[in-house]
Simulated scan of single mutants.
Amino acid sequence: MGKYFILALCCLALFSCSDGDLQIETIDFDSVSLQYCSAPVATTKNILFKINGDEALILELQSGVLNKGVVGDTIVTQSTISSQSQVTYRIFNDDVDNSYFCDDIPTVDPVVLEEVEAEDGLVIIETYADTDGTNFVHNISLSGVSFVTGSGERITNLTISDFGEVTTAIP
């Protein structure tokens, strides 16, 4: 009887261990600088990203969303996440740098441990002309972003009031 009890305890211990799922507690990129591989262009899709150690928040802006400026006015444009623009959160097995996103041949390391795409939210872009009138300045923020992980964990109401600032030439 004692053998069966010990066997049952071993089986219970074996099957009750964590299955290694990642737990995302917070997504915080407020104090991290915005980066991109090539200067944003007003008429095409633009990939912007923030790196925080072994995490990255990637924003793919819809084509033309930065082409909404009017000299002399401040214009506020919104882009809906998942149907127009895309926000992706990645966790890596080691620290990542911009070469991961910018190299012509993608690097093998670090490895993506988890990738979660936002299902909802808004990209808000405030556009105005710079002081000398040669460029548009675009202040980008995210609001109401909602992620759902592969295990069904929902991370909602993510607000990054200052995702970053980019400039584009006034056409």
Rank of each mutant, 00 (worst) to 15 (best):
M1Y: 11
K3F: 14
Y4A: 13
Y4P: 01
I6K: 15
A8S: 12
C10R: 09
C10G: 11
L12R: 01
S16F: 13
S16H: 07
C17H: 13
C17R: 13
S18A: 05
S18V: 07
G20W: 07
Q23N: 15
I24S: 08
I24W: 07
I24C: 07
I24T: 07
D28S: 09
S31P: 03
S33D: 12
Q35M: 15
C37D: 05
P40Y: 10
V41T: 15
N46C: 08
I51F: 09
D54Y: 14
A56I: 03
L57V: 11
I58A: 12
L61S: 07
V65A: 11
V65M: 06
V65R: 01
K68D: 06
G69R: 02
V71D: 08
V71N: 15
V71A: 12
D73E: 12
T74Y: 04
T74S: 10
T74H: 10
V76F: 01
Q78Y: 03
T80N: 14
T80C: 11
I81A: 07
S85I: 01
S85W: 03
Q86E: 08
Q86L: 15
T88Y: 01
F92L: 06
D94F: 02
D94Y: 04
D95F: 12
D95L: 11
V96C: 04
D97W: 01
N98M: 08
D104G: 04
I105R: 12
V108L: 14
D109R: 12
P110N: 04
P110V: 05
P110A: 03
V111M: 08
V112S: 05
E115Q: 13
V116R: 04
A118P: 00
A118G: 07
I124S: 04
I124Q: 04
I125A: 00
Y128N: 06
A129P: 02
A129R: 03
D130H: 01
D130M: 02
D132F: 01
T134A: 15
N135D: 05
F136V: 04
V137S: 06
S141G: 10
S143C: 04
G144A: 14
S146R: 13
V148H: 09
T149Q: 09
G150L: 07
S151M: 13
S151E: 07
E153C: 09
I155D: 00
I160C: 01
F163S: 02
G164R: 09
V166H: 01
V166E: 03
T167N: 10
A169L: 11
A169T: 13
I170A: 07
